[in-house]
Amino acid sequence: MSTEFSAEAYAKAAAAAIRLPLDARHLPGVAFNLALAARMAAVIEGMPLGPADEAAPVFVAGREPPR
């Protein structure tokens, strides 16, 4: 199975999954931006990360409001 990224095909499938009607007029621009995002994703894919590397946002259960 090919793992090549087809931005247009992905856009159509993902839009359906989140109930986003995607007008055919917008599809080329969306595909262009998804392809750009894919290049950015390739840049971060190579970062060496281990199991201890948590995501930046850290959930806080609550904090004292300022007085």
Binding site: Y10, A11, I18, L20, H26, G29, V30, A31, N33, A37
Partner: peptide, 8 residues
Amino acid sequence: DRFLAGAL
């Protein structure tokens, strides 16, 4: 188009 792509 950037917002649309971002949502996906």
